[in-house]
Design a protein around this nucleic acid. Structure first.
Lengths: 197, 197
DNA sequence: GTATAATGTGAACAAGCGTTCACAATAATG
DNA sequence: CATTATTGTGAACGCTTGTTCACATTATAC
């Protein structure tokens, strides 16, 4: 059956989101144009009406990831003014969206990042830096309010914060989704929190 | 030129170490039997004299990783009796061997782990659990000696500890090897240490 | 020293990959 | 309504992949 004719903008978003979903499960390397097309409901060659080649499709997906991360951050900052509470909410969101968000660590460690064009690594680096920058700002505010004299700067702590999520993701994935992410992150948060207040 | 005839045990080790080295740079997906064979100095078909198929080669490499991790841990525990110092040494070792050890995170997030046989995921899970178990024991000793009443159990803290290394690895890789891992881990260590003593 | 087992080689294979292209169908424009 | 631009289709391409197999070479065992 022939697929409906939709605008390129629509298809581009469809394709981007399909890539994200597929990356979350199977990583970026097992992602073939054939499977991607099937998921979107098109024939492989149809993808090339909307993107020049596979590289452009992947880059679009990376942009999507960056957008979502930043949206998550700003949504959290809007929810409350308390920096400590913001970090807590952020961790909870990561725990809640662990399945879909696996696309992120999959991407960060994909071989595409080392084998593919340098521009892609830089693009990804930039997205992550922005997100960590958001966290760093929150931590800076928290440190200003807190009573402790911290043993490290806000940037170090923001990378550590990301490490909490990463380690949870690894273990969750490796355990066959059995590892209790929410519990771990709650405990880890209690420790991390102690470094701030 | 025809390659020398070596015993299978010798070739197996050669192949395993070649996989590790190649994984560290390019991940596990870009790893083809052709490139692997060239690196070992053989012709692709020769690999099949020593392993039944590619899956078996990868499993062997995973075993090698496990061995190295445990060796690292026991070497560190032998170096000093002080648990705090042990953890510090372990972090320093991770910083020093970051380039070679990239094979580990590459493996942990490889799509081979989700697409490949379940046995491989379990195998990897087991290796990592053993290593984290070692860290957990060290932390347990440290907590018993310390004066603080910890806000989380030793297992949580051991996963957090691994998270330090992971986040450093991500950033280092993404920054094009420019990120100062040693500096970051020193600072992160000061924070983590504060949770123990 | 001869037979036997172990290891290496090159050719060949089927399958999957990303991509191109002529052509068909549909939507947008006049 | 006619024209034109846009989107979808199926076949075909060159390439890489993992693997097998008959055959050549070398080490080991008797």
């Amino acid at each position: 059956m022939r697929a409906a004719k939709r605008h390129t903008a629509f298809r581009r978003r469809q394709i981007g989101e399909a890539i994200l979903a597929m990356m979350a499960r199977d990583g970026i390397a097992g992602l073939s144009t054939a499977r991607l097309a099937r998921r979107v409901g098109l024939v492989p060659s149809a993808l090339y009406r909307h993107y020049k080649n596979k590289d452009e499709m992947l880059d679009a997906a990376i942009d999507l990831i960056g957008e979502r991360l930043l949206a998550q951050a700003s949504r959290t900052r809007a929810a409350t003014g308390d920096p400590i509470r913001q970090l807590e909410l952020l961790l909870a969101a990561h725990a809640r969206h662990m399945p879909e968000n696996q696309a992120i660590p999959q991407l960060l460690f994909s071989e595409e990042l080392s084998l593919g064009p340098v521009s892609r690594r830089r693009r990804t680096h930039q997205k992550l830096r922005r997100y960590i920058g958001e966290i760093e700002q929150i931590i800076r505010v928290a440190l200003a309010q807190g009573r402790t004299r911290p043993a490290a700067d806000a940037r170090t702590m923001s990378i550590m914060f990301m490490g909490l999520v990463q380690s949870a993701g690894i273990y969750w994935r490796l355990s066959g989704r059995r590892f209790d992410v929410a519990r771990y992150l709650r405990q880890a948060w209690r420790l991390f929190r102690g470094l701030l207040v």
